[in-house]
């Protein structure tokens, strides 16, 4: 009788717990166990020598009570720097492009459209190489900045499409009310349209931010010593291929999951009731 009782929490999250849920979870655990067993047997066949005990010192060092970051966490700090600047710039590029495309200026529309199509239709890896090997020497920009610029230009193009969709989704009555009150276009965007649009856009913008964190691994190709590059260097030194790549993947996972959680909390806090 109580099997389909919907709790308030379930209504929020869309999750409903009942008896079949437990069987679902059981089946899932069994599947994972079988997969783990198969991988274990596979590595036995390879004769791989697991050396997990050697991994921690690449994360951090504790000597005489002083704590120092190992190469992997140092790399993570560089990844943070790249993604933090990347997020700010990508949002700026995205917003400007979206506003350009919605403006009445012919030139602005063409510029925005050209940027979007150029970025969306070429591989990110090629853009990174182009910026680093062609533009960086010409403009005299350094390696890290070239990496940040390439990433933010790339993600900004996608962010602009998300922002544009969000802006046009705001009812035109909001524009009319703002205009009838004598607000300028700038004030209308700043106080009326963007605050409403960005609340609606938090989930897709989060996906874009997570993409940016993951895509930052690609700048290891121009020898920026972020997390992935440090991982490659350690593997080259130690041949602990499996342990290091498992660890690097886990670090990315932890970072992106924390970001997702933070945004979920923000969504609840800034919820607009319609």
């Amino acid at each position: 009788m109580n099997r389909l009782m919907i709790t308030p929490r379930a209504r929020r999250t869309g999750l409903v717990f009942n008896r079949s849920t437990f069987f679902d979870i059981l089946k899932f655990i069994l599947l994972i166990a079988v997969l783990t067993f198969l991988i274990y047997r596979g590595t036995l066949g390879l004769g791989y020598n697991w050396q997990w005990f050697r991994v921690p010192k690449y994360l951090f060092l504790l000597e005489d009570g002083t704590f120092t970051l190992g190469p992997l966490l140092n790399g993570l700090m560089v990844t943070f720097r790249i993604t933090a600047w990347g997020l700010v710039l990508a949002f700026a590029f995205g917003l400007v492009t979206a506003l350009f495309r919605l403006s009445h200026s012919f030139v602005a529309v063409v510029v925005a459209r050209g940027y979007l199509e150029l970025i969306r239709n070429t591989p990110l890896l090629v853009q990174i190489f182009f910026l680093y090997f062609v533009m960086a020497p010409v403009l005299g920009i350094e390696r890290l900045f070239a990496a940040i610029l390439a990433l933010s230009l790339f993600e900004g193009a996608y962010a602009s499409e998300i922002l544009r969709a969000g802006i046009v989704s705001i009812h035109k009555g909001q524009w009319e009310a703002a205009h009838s009150l004598g607000l300028t276009t700038f004030h209308t965007y700043r106080y009326i349209i963007l605050p409403q649009a960005i609340r609606r856009l938090l989930p897709p913008l989060t996906s874009q931010a997570i993409s940016l964190i993951k895509d930052s691994a690609l700048v290891s190709t121009i020898a920026v010593y972020e997390l992935t590059m440090e991982g490659r260097a350690i593997v080259a030194d130690t041949f602990m291929t499996f342990e290091i790549w498992f660890t690097v993947a886990a670090i990315y996972l932890v970072v992106t999951i924390i970001l997702s959680l933070v945004v979920t909390i923000m969504e609840v806090r800034f919820k607009v009731v319609h």
Partner: peptide, 8 residues
């Protein structure tokens, strides 16, 4: 007609 108040 539809008020157009700012919901946020």
């Amino acid at each position: 007609q539809l008020f157009n108040l700012f919901p946020h």
